[in-house]
Amino acid sequence: MANQGENNTKLGIFVMAGLFVLILTFFMIGKNKSLFGGDFVLKARFSNLNGLMEGNNVLYAGIQAGTVKNIALINDTTIEVTLAINSKVKAYIHKNALVAIGTEGLMGNKVVNIIQVKGTAVNVANGDLLSPQKTVSTEEMLQTLSKTNNNLAVISEGLKGTITRINSSTLMEVIDNKEMGENLKASLRNINKATEDASHITYGLNTLVTGIKQGKGSLGLLLTDTAFAGNLRQAGMKIRSASEQTSALTKQLNEVVDGVHQDLAYGKGPLQVLLRDSAAGSNLNKTIENLQKGTDGFNQNMEALKHNFLFKGYFKKADKKKAQLH
């Protein structure tokens, strides 16, 4: 009899433990769900939902902020999405916030990201319509990356040629030689364009990295988890420093040319010109070397990126297109 009682106690503990796990699970899941049970909703309109469904999560600054409550077709190009927003988060969302559709995890569910925008705006009210963020697609971003990369390579090649020639001749010759002058000017124009491109790519990379932080897209996720994020960021920095140096170079060259012209105009002696020449030459050399390093580093990163399987498809397509063009 006593034994039976003891067994029943053990059984009771066992069952209570099982029920505890069950209740805990339901409670934990229920907590996530019921928080968004309120009536506070926001709306957004998209032309393409990319598979977003009712019940998908809504994130604000990366925090769980609600769920997708309803999806309705308004006309042939517009879909209105209603978002049920967690009462704790709603106080922090401003009217100028943007919404975008992203992906949770590599192959995960779609999510709606609410992105805070700098600047002051009043808090959202129930039923407000938020505007969608113009998103740069991965495809576009990669295209820009690769184009800029190619441009930079060509430019740095051309620049190298020009500089070598500058180095092997005196500056006087450079200025006297009409053809060389044209070359240099062309190079300068290219450098300016490269600078523009470089700043463009830096912007692109920044967007990418922001996207990563918001868990946007499979690419974004991939990048958070691998060394590629670091690589890309490094590449961005290299490009930026290269672009800075390019502008420095342009400025220097301009200065040198101006200086020479002035010296000659003011009748300074050739000795002075020569002195300036050598100083400017070594200066120029150093800048160019730096530029070279920057583009090399970037090239390496691009190469590494090409070997990642996820991008293989893209680069293959690009190669094919190139082959067709040629």
Binding site: Q4, N7, N8, K10, L11, F14, V15
Partner: peptide
């Protein structure tokens, strides 16, 4: 009931 409890003990608790 008694047998049910005894079986629950045997089948449930003892398999844990």
């Amino acid at each position: 009931f008694r047998e049910l409890l005894a079986q629950c003990y045997q089948i449930g608790y003892k398999s844990f």
